[in-house]
Amino acid sequence: MVKVIQEKSDSELWNEFLSGEKLAFKTIYDNHIQLLFKFGRHFTKNEELILDCIHDVFIDLYNYRTNINSTNNIKLYLIVSFRRKLFRNLKDKGRFVSLDDDSSCFSYTLYSSTEIDDDEKSSKISWLEKSMNKLSSRQQEAIYLRFVKGLSYEELSDVLQVNYQSARNLIFRGIEKLRENGNEELIYLLLFVRKIDS
């Protein structure tokens, strides 16, 4: 049942939701809850705050559904709305020093270092941590949304509130830095990936 619904396009799901289908609303929640939670965890360790923001996102989605026109890209709408709410809340809590909206505190590896005792995994994590720390948080966030969440450059520029070229530049420079800094680790990783594959 749920599987069938997931195969529906965003616009079909959205129309069902608009016509009052509770199941469609629940499907939208189920399809995006992990994405939003994981994304939020790169900004803060405060999981309660993240869940409060997700709650507000879905209440807004329900209350203002007739005024929302981005019906063919629910994921993008949710990410943008969630990010805005999270920033506002973090700002209220004084987590951001700067009042500038652009200075998000995205950290690629905020919660990955501990808890994992697997050798192979931790070597990948240490590579990520070492090289990502050399990037700006904007670059980290852009790479995360592009390569982990699969956003297109157009979608990325919507989320980060920049134009297409700036989104391209953020990723380009970020990758360049990673390539410069991470060569040795990368070779090591390649060896170990081959080992797994064989």
């Binding site: 994981k38 790479i143 990368l186």
Partner: peptide, 20 residues
């Protein structure tokens, strides 16, 4: 190499547990 590089960009992330 390019594929491996991009694969390695995926961090370890905790899922939100069922109960919350």
């Amino acid at each position: 190499e390019a594929i491996t590089f991009i694969h390695n960009l995926i961090p370890e992330e905790k899922e939100l547990r069922d109960e919350p």
